[in-house]
Amino acid sequence: MADASTLQSGPGRRLRTPAVLVALTCCLLVVLALGLGLGAVRVPAATLLNTLLGLDGPRQDFIVLGSRLPRTLLGALTGAALGLSGAIIQSLLRNPLASPKIVGINSGAAFAVLLCAFLLPDAAARLTPFAAAVGGVVAGSVVWLMAGRLALDAARLTLVGIAVGFVMEAGVEFLLVTQTGPEFSAPLVWLTGSLWGRGWTHLWSVAPALGGLMALALLMSFRLDLQYLGPQRAAALGVRLGLERGMLLVIGVLLAALSVGVVGVVGFIGLMAPHIAARLVGGRHRALLPTAALVGAILCAGADVAGRALMPPIEISAGILTALLGAPFFIWLLLTEGRRPGAPR
């Protein structure tokens, strides 16, 4: 028999959310520290501390403060945004296999970047983040508007997203096959999703927007809980379906598109992070969203530092590592998701 006090505490089987958040934060700090210390040049811990705290003694200001700190922070920030975006999109579509990629954001961004390199070769490098964000938002909006015309149906929205994604990918491949000029080498590296050469300017160009969107997403976590109940049930509980759905989708699309714009297509984080988070803290978005953000930050920053540390001085793109890690995870997900109780039917 459950009395009122156990009703509030939640299930014993599920890990307590605050403990999980603290543990993940510690984990993220370790990854960030590794991100500052590891790479082509190893910076010892003492030097790292001296540098960060501005103490006397051996310091590595240029490598640590000028290069690795903004790059690692940017990795964590975009990873968090991708994880959060994935969690929002999966819940909104009520599809555990959905991700920013599924609603066409990644391929929309990729197509826009290549198109930009093709049309404006001189300005391409400078315009890459902007073009990617625009492309992602346009693709996301097309999907949303088309699905909106077909009534607010999660399954159709997913299918429309896949279809739009294919069109965009066809465009990407057409440009890659027909264009071989030197101006296409930078977009190619960007396509694999890399934090190489990202600095403070990149960080500040997206940090305020991503921070604001993330805060907004966390505030809407309860509305996302209600959306998951399906349109009829949610409407019966007083949810303004179209408005709230639209707001959440715009937040999810912008989070992913801005991230892709600045670090490129780092795949699978938006797919993996929400699933790992759900296993840790359950399905309530108040717990799920911050957890997914932290997991995404750890995955992205971790993939970046691993790519730098595995075989220096060669860097492996974070996107390649997340794909290597993500593809087996995706298959495992397909194999186990149907058997998992509570998976949407």
Binding site: G10, P96, L229, R233, A236, A278, G282, G283, R340, P344
Partner: peptide, 15 residues
């Protein structure tokens, strides 16, 4: 209103 079809959110408890 109790609709005929009700989606079960994964990882959510009865309470």
């Amino acid at each position: 209103l109790l609709p005929q079809e009700n989606a079960v959110p994964p990882g959510v408890t009865v309470v």
